[in-house]
Design a protein around this nucleic acid. Structure first.
Length: 154
DNA sequence: GCCAACGTTGGC
DNA sequence: GCCAACGTTGGC
Protein backbone atom coordinates (compact mmCIF):
# COMPACT_ATOMS: atom_id res chain seq x y z
CA UNK A 1 0.00 0.00 0.00
CA UNK A 2 1.19 3.49 -0.77
CA UNK A 3 2.60 5.54 2.04
CA UNK A 4 0.65 8.59 3.13
CA UNK A 5 2.31 11.76 4.31
CA UNK A 6 1.19 14.02 7.15
CA UNK A 7 2.12 17.09 9.10
CA UNK A 8 1.74 17.09 12.90
CA UNK A 9 1.87 20.35 14.82
CA UNK A 10 3.25 20.42 18.31
CA UNK A 11 4.12 23.23 20.65
CA UNK A 12 7.80 23.13 21.39
CA UNK A 13 7.39 23.60 25.14
CA UNK A 14 4.67 20.94 25.33
CA UNK A 15 6.25 18.12 23.31
CA UNK A 16 9.19 18.95 21.09
CA UNK A 17 11.06 16.85 18.57
CA UNK A 18 13.78 16.46 21.21
CA UNK A 19 11.23 15.00 23.62
CA UNK A 20 10.21 12.54 20.92
CA UNK A 21 13.84 11.72 20.17
CA UNK A 22 14.43 10.98 23.83
CA UNK A 23 11.32 8.87 24.30
CA UNK A 24 11.57 7.22 20.85
CA UNK A 25 7.79 6.73 20.59
CA UNK A 26 4.66 8.48 21.84
CA UNK A 27 0.90 8.44 21.53
CA UNK A 28 -0.53 11.52 19.82
CA UNK A 29 -3.07 12.59 22.40
CA UNK A 30 -5.44 15.49 22.65
CA UNK A 31 -6.70 16.05 19.10
CA UNK A 32 -10.17 17.54 19.64
CA UNK A 33 -11.21 18.60 16.17
CA UNK A 34 -13.50 16.46 14.02
CA UNK A 35 -11.71 17.00 10.74
CA UNK A 36 -8.38 16.10 12.31
CA UNK A 37 -10.03 13.17 14.09
CA UNK A 38 -11.24 11.81 10.77
CA UNK A 39 -7.73 11.90 9.31
CA UNK A 40 -6.45 10.04 12.36
CA UNK A 41 -9.25 7.49 12.50
CA UNK A 42 -9.79 6.83 8.82
CA UNK A 43 -6.66 7.57 6.86
CA UNK A 44 -3.49 7.17 8.92
CA UNK A 45 -1.75 3.88 8.27
CA UNK A 46 1.21 2.13 9.79
CA UNK A 47 4.35 3.20 7.98
CA UNK A 48 3.04 6.64 7.02
CA UNK A 49 5.57 9.44 7.40
CA UNK A 50 5.05 12.59 9.42
CA UNK A 51 6.59 16.04 9.17
CA UNK A 52 7.11 17.17 12.76
CA UNK A 53 6.23 20.86 13.09
CA UNK A 54 6.74 23.27 15.97
CA UNK A 55 4.04 25.91 16.30
CA UNK A 56 3.64 28.82 18.68
CA UNK A 57 7.34 29.35 19.24
CA UNK A 58 10.12 31.64 18.15
CA UNK A 59 11.05 29.75 15.00
CA UNK A 60 8.01 27.93 13.70
CA UNK A 61 8.72 25.26 11.15
CA UNK A 62 9.36 21.59 10.38
CA UNK A 63 12.02 20.08 12.62
CA UNK A 64 12.12 16.46 11.57
CA UNK A 65 10.36 13.26 10.61
CA UNK A 66 8.40 10.64 12.51
CA UNK A 67 6.66 7.45 11.45
CA UNK A 68 3.25 6.11 12.34
CA UNK A 69 3.69 2.78 14.11
CA UNK A 70 0.19 2.16 15.47
CA UNK A 71 -3.08 2.96 13.77
CA UNK A 72 -6.07 4.67 15.37
CA UNK A 73 -7.30 3.60 18.79
CA UNK A 74 -9.38 5.49 21.35
CA UNK A 75 -7.72 8.54 22.90
CA UNK A 76 -7.86 7.49 26.55
CA UNK A 77 -7.08 10.98 27.82
CA UNK A 78 -10.68 11.86 26.89
CA UNK A 79 -11.87 9.44 29.61
CA UNK A 80 -9.59 10.82 32.31
CA UNK A 81 -11.29 13.48 34.40
CA UNK A 82 -7.92 14.75 35.55
CA UNK A 83 -6.60 15.24 32.02
CA UNK A 84 -6.84 18.62 30.36
CA UNK A 85 -8.11 16.71 27.33
CA UNK A 86 -11.02 15.18 29.26
CA UNK A 87 -14.28 15.17 27.29
CA UNK A 88 -17.42 13.90 29.02
CA UNK A 89 -19.08 13.29 25.65
CA UNK A 90 -16.54 10.63 24.69
CA UNK A 91 -17.54 7.24 26.13
CA UNK A 92 -15.29 4.22 26.47
CA UNK A 93 -17.79 2.06 24.61
CA UNK A 94 -18.31 4.73 21.93
CA UNK A 95 -15.23 6.96 21.78
CA UNK A 96 -15.32 10.31 20.04
CA UNK A 97 -11.58 10.90 19.87
CA UNK A 98 -8.74 8.77 18.54
CA UNK A 99 -4.97 8.73 18.53
CA UNK A 100 -2.09 7.05 16.74
CA UNK A 101 1.38 6.17 17.97
CA UNK A 102 4.45 7.59 16.27
CA UNK A 103 8.15 6.83 16.41
CA UNK A 104 11.04 9.27 16.07
CA UNK A 105 12.81 8.90 12.76
CA UNK A 106 14.99 11.89 12.10
CA UNK A 107 15.75 15.40 13.33
CA UNK A 108 16.67 17.77 10.52
CA UNK A 109 20.16 19.27 10.55
CA UNK A 110 18.52 22.42 9.26
CA UNK A 111 14.93 23.03 10.31
CA UNK A 112 12.68 24.20 7.50
CA UNK A 113 11.06 27.38 8.77
CA UNK A 114 7.60 28.56 7.88
CA UNK A 115 9.06 31.66 6.24
CA UNK A 116 11.13 29.44 3.92
CA UNK A 117 8.11 27.29 3.14
CA UNK A 118 6.10 30.40 2.30
CA UNK A 119 8.74 31.68 -0.06
CA UNK A 120 9.03 28.37 -1.95
CA UNK A 121 6.64 28.55 -4.91
CA UNK A 122 6.57 24.75 -5.14
CA UNK A 123 4.84 24.71 -1.75
CA UNK A 124 2.30 27.45 -2.34
CA UNK A 125 -0.61 24.99 -2.37
CA UNK A 126 0.37 23.35 0.88
CA UNK A 127 -2.39 23.37 3.47
CA UNK A 128 0.08 24.80 5.96
CA UNK A 129 0.39 28.11 4.15
CA UNK A 130 -3.25 28.51 3.23
CA UNK A 131 -5.35 31.10 4.96
CA UNK A 132 -6.76 30.29 8.34
CA UNK A 133 -5.28 26.81 8.56
CA UNK A 134 -5.58 25.73 12.16
CA UNK A 135 -5.74 21.95 11.86
CA UNK A 136 -3.18 20.27 14.08
CA UNK A 137 -2.78 17.27 11.79
CA UNK A 138 -3.37 17.18 8.05
CA UNK A 139 -2.14 15.42 4.90
CA UNK A 140 0.70 16.62 2.71
CA UNK A 141 1.51 15.30 -0.75
CA UNK A 142 4.59 13.21 -1.50
CA UNK A 143 5.90 16.08 -3.60
CA UNK A 144 5.54 18.51 -0.71
CA UNK A 145 7.07 16.05 1.71
CA UNK A 146 10.06 15.42 -0.54
CA UNK A 147 10.55 19.13 -1.17
CA UNK A 148 10.69 19.88 2.56
CA UNK A 149 13.15 17.07 3.17
CA UNK A 150 15.26 18.48 0.34
CA UNK A 151 15.16 21.96 1.88
CA UNK A 152 16.40 20.55 5.17
CA UNK A 153 19.56 19.32 3.49
CA UNK A 154 20.63 22.62 1.98
C1' DG B 1 -31.75 25.85 11.11
C1' DC B 2 -29.87 30.49 11.92
C1' DC B 3 -26.62 33.37 13.97
C1' DA B 4 -24.34 35.92 17.69
C1' DA B 5 -21.21 35.14 21.34
C1' DC B 6 -17.46 33.01 22.90
C1' DG B 7 -13.17 30.24 23.10
C1' DT B 8 -9.04 28.57 20.85
C1' DT B 9 -5.29 28.45 17.55
C1' DG B 10 -1.30 30.29 15.89
C1' DG B 11 1.51 33.78 13.34
C1' DC B 12 3.62 37.92 14.16
C1' DG C 1 0.17 40.96 23.64
C1' DC C 2 -2.55 41.55 19.48
C1' DC C 3 -5.55 40.03 16.14
C1' DA C 4 -7.54 37.26 12.30
C1' DA C 5 -9.63 32.98 11.39
C1' DC C 6 -12.34 29.48 12.57
C1' DG C 7 -15.00 25.88 15.45
C1' DT C 8 -18.45 25.24 18.90
C1' DT C 9 -22.25 26.46 21.77
C1' DG C 10 -26.70 27.85 22.85
C1' DG C 11 -30.81 30.88 22.48
C1' DC C 12 -34.50 31.52 19.60
Amino acid sequence: MATNYWLFKSEEDVYSIDDLKKEKTTHWEGVRNYQARNFIRDDMKKGDLVLYYHSNCENVGVYGIAEIIKEAYPDFTAFDKKSKYYDSKSKENDPTWFMVDIRFKEKFDNPVYLTDIKSNSKLKNMRLVQRGNRLSVFPVTKTEFDEIVKMSKI
